[in-house]
Design a protein around this nucleic acid. Structure first.
Lengths: 336, 336
DNA sequence: GTAAATTTCGAAAACGTTTCCGTAAAAAAC
DNA sequence: GTTTTTTACGGAAACGTTTTCGAAATTTAC
């Protein structure tokens, strides 16, 4: 029942397989009359060309892969949303792969993708990735590759990022403006270019305002460990009066510890965080956030990837795209 | 550079293509010595078999499709996480499609998938879907299909859901226990089996406790419209002292309106909602939630789908799987 | 010793498309 | 009226893999 294919259509219509194929693709070598006849029967029988045969012959799959560290993270799911929008509109399919911040998984995934399964790949690298050989190997095959958010600066492929460093600078400055003298930064592992940007924005702001007392706490995936570190930080001698969280999760951990220790936000501690959570406005107190243009990043990255896939020339400004993040000031950084 | 294929390997090794193919698949008809030789060269050249040729020949793609209404929604991204875990472990690939709650998109997607691109499909249907012909047509092709969360009860394919009705009953009872006399239900459009479950749980609880004054408000995707409806509800004569939101978004809308109208939660209004947001604990006040086992649903649905794909028999209790939701009581339903 | 079974491999068909090439018939050019 | 071009289509190769069939070479059975 399933196997309605070109041969079947051809048989039914007394035409050659090649003619049917051409008719369906609106080839001008086929008369309008025949085209209509073919299409009518195809529609009637619900013919859908076999994508594997098609891909094999044409050496393209109309599929792209998106590789991200995780998906529960609001940022990445919004990115994916943007990607899928563009892909669906262009008639492409989207394969999704999660690395769970594991370099080895990332390597395995890249390896499997190096064989024509997809026409292109966009990736936000895992934060345990320090070696980029697997990406280089992928690129060597000539397949289109685009980085977004967590990029490998060294590689000469399109990057789509947000202005992490600048946004971070502004967020830090915002804390200063609201009266903080002693700001701690909850950082991700340092091998990430992304965290470096965020960290350097923080450091730049401190330097600019003549504050040398940087406090950087490296947090990770384990909530309890994070809380432990934050607890220690908030109970220390020179305890900060402001916290800038590199990712939302750390802000959540901060809130938890503050509840636990009865530290009032924003009176005793002001908090700002990178976050794409719409519900941040409902937090107690509402959390000031640096919102990344996640959907736009996804959309832009996909658009550029498709341009590369379709071998269109990229404009110079499409090789490194930066989309601005936006600070939303809320009560967590309000004046006492 | 790219095209290292069986023929190339065969040429290099003075073997037939068929021998190389078999050697790589550890066919017992090939001597251990030859197998090793072949594998060594394959590894050296980084050979990856062309998946389209493979899929075409074997008539299977080692790929499944996941069709969901949206992905920003925490629930679905957690489901996807579960699915991807199982898939990656089994060496399958995952295609993702978003319907954006649009029945027509859903139809188009299903149509394109009806041709061997995937070995199986799992779907949570859009809430604008009332007609299931497209799903029936898909099933007719004999391809494996699994429903999760938003199911089509009528179709005889595996369902993986949570105990919506029961959880809803419990949540309503919880509100009653906390002193509510007048509970409103913020509902999704009624054609969804899912919302029917949640609604009926609510109604059952009211009936059980002899409360006839049901208040059902149908909300949708537009935040402003929702707020409008909630505003009207909370300003009405018999304004409720409890709100039960069928989805997280409506709870957010409720909070927003309460802030706006200076209605105190939980003193004046208690709120509970279906939600998978970890940060619900940080809300002001912390939101009581019905947490769905999203990750588990994804994992279970994928596991069952793979069983069907691999033509294993399903146990009777795998045809309809229900995984319990869990109520987390927080301040939003606390005693004044 | 021959017959039978086993091991190990090669040739070729097959999957369903797309596309290259060829070729009748019709139309246009002169 | 002949030649050239155009139109409309058919035949077959090709994509890279898997698998069927077959067949040497080796081993085992008797």
């Amino acid at each position: 029942m399933d196997n309605v294919n070109l041969k079947k259509l051809a048989g039914e219509l007394n035409l050659a397989v090649s003619t049917v194929s051409r008719a369906l693709r609106d080839n001008h070598e086929i008369s309008q009359e025949t085209r209509d006849r073919v299409k009518a029967l195809a529609a009637k029988l619900g013919f859908q060309p076999n994508p594997h045969a098609s891909s094999l012959r044409q050496n393209k799959s109309r599929t792209i892969a998106v590789v991200v560290p995780e998906i529960q993270n609001n940022f990445f799911s919004q990115v994916l949303n943007g990607v899928e929008d563009v892909a669906q509109q262009k008639g492409y399919h989207v394969l999704i792969y999660l690395t769970h911040e594991d370099h080895n998984r990332e390597k395995d995934i890249l390896k499997v993708l190096r064989n024509g399964r997809v026409d292109g790949l966009m990736i936000s690298v895992s934060n345990t990735t320090t070696n980029f050989d697997h990406l280089e190997a992928y690129r060597q095959t000539g397949m289109p590759l685009v980085f977004f958010d967590r990029v490998c600066e060294e590689m000469d492929v399109p990057h789509i990022t947000t202005d992490d460093s600048k946004a971070s600078y502004k967020a830090t400055e915002h804390l200063l403006k609201m009266g903080c003298k002693n700001i701690a930064f909850l950082s991700l592992a340092c091998n990430l270019s992304i965290s470096n940007g965020r960290r350097s924005g923080y450091l730049q702001a401190l330097a600019k305002h003549g504050l040398g007392n940087k406090m950087i706490v490296e947090c990770g995936t384990d909530d309890e460990v994070n809380r432990q570190k934050i607890r220690k930080l908030l109970q220390s001698e020179q305890r900060p009066d402001g916290i800038f969280a590199a990712i939302e999760k750390f802000a959540v951990n901060t809130y938890e510890v503050c509840y636990e220790l009865n530290i009032c936000i924003p009176q005793q501690l002001k908090v700002v965080s990178f976050s794409n959570l719409a519900a941040a406005a409902l937090f107690n107190p509402p959390l000031s956030t640096v919102i990344q243009p996640a959907y736009e990043i996804g959309k832009e990255a996909a658009t550029i990837l498709f341009k590369v896939v379709e071998k269109k020339m990229l404009l110079p400004n499409e090789k490194k795209v930066t989309i601005a993040s936006q600070i939303v000031e809320r009560k967590s950084t309000g004046r006492s």
